[in-house]
């Protein structure tokens, strides 16, 4: 654990979460959620949870983003809020 690194990533996490929820384009929202997943993956590697970080890198940033984008392509891309 390195606390300065930890705090920087946590602040970025809040920023990316807010961006993912305010962007009107759902494709961009999914991509920002992928960035969020990568950030939280780094955070877990830093906290010593290497297995969780590995899973998050494979699942959250890989499969989760892909299935979200697949749904956005099959439905509507624009969101009203």
């Amino acid at each position: 654990m390195i606390w300065s690194f930890d705090i920087i990533i946590l602040i970025f996490l809040v920023i990316t979460a807010v961006i993912a929820l305010t962007v009107k384009d759902l494709l961009a929202s999914s991509m920002v959620l992928g960035i969020y997943s990568f950030l939280i993956c780094i955070l877990w590697a830093e906290m010593g949870a290497v297995d969780v970080a590995f899973t998050e890198a494979a699942v959250g940033a890989g499969v989760s983003t892909v299935i979200m984008i697949a749904t956005v392509f099959q439905t509507a891309r624009k969101s009203k809020d």
């Binding site: 993912a20 759902l26 929202s29 877990w44 979200m68 749904t71 956005v72 969101s79």
Partner: peptide
């Protein structure tokens, strides 16, 4: 949120928040 996908994005964030609590 009005959009269903946005609700699911919120669900993902909620989930990672809980995981963050546990790992911390």
């Amino acid at each position: 949120k009005n959009n269903l996908i946005k609700k699911l994005v919120g669900m993902c964030i909620f989930q990672t928040a809980i995981i963050l609590f546990y790992v911390s």
